[in-house]
Amino acid sequence: MGPALPLDEAGAYVAAAYLVFLALILAYVGIMASKLGRIEKELTELTELAARRDADDPAREKEHA
């Protein structure tokens, strides 16, 4: 094993390692965010569907109320 790297050189490697970790976590959060977006879209569609159905069928609306 060679002598310890000087601080300025070692610092870059250490920073790179910690940045890799940070980047992976952020990428993961990004992917999960896009999944959340899809869930939100589906929920909106479902809500619209339910609202339309209630409008078509006034008897049901009374039931709900």
């Binding site: 094993m1 310890a4 790297l5 601080l7 490697y13 250490v14 390692a17 970790f21």
Partner: peptide, 15 residues
Amino acid sequence: LDADQGFIQKIFYLH
């Protein structure tokens, strides 16, 4: 600081 490796050993706490 690690006696042998110096600053680079800080990766250990992540890796």
